[in-house]
């Protein structure tokens, strides 16, 4: 579950426009070869983020 997105730059706006909001469930689906970028499922769709971008998103493990 997403707890929040850190920072106040354009990236944060973009992440929020993509649906990374507080309290939303997010699930990691896949990792690209060599470990970056990462693929997530949020709001039922697939979103790719780089490690550096994903690091901005604070999450809490919920275990599903």
């Amino acid at each position: 579950m997403i707890l929040g997105v850190d920072g106040d730059d354009a990236l944060v706006q973009q992440l929020e426009a993509s649906g990374l909001w507080c309290g939303v469930a997010i699930e990691r689906l896949a990792t690209a070869p060599f470990g970056d970028p990462l693929l997530f499922r949020v709001h039922g769709y697939r979103l790719a983020l780089r490690q550096s971008e994903a690091a901005r998103v604070r999450v809490r493990e919920t275990g599903a």
Partner: peptide
């Protein structure tokens, strides 16, 4: 630029 990209 950040890669915030949907995989359709």
């Amino acid at each position: 630029s950040p890669l915030v990209m949907e995989l359709p």
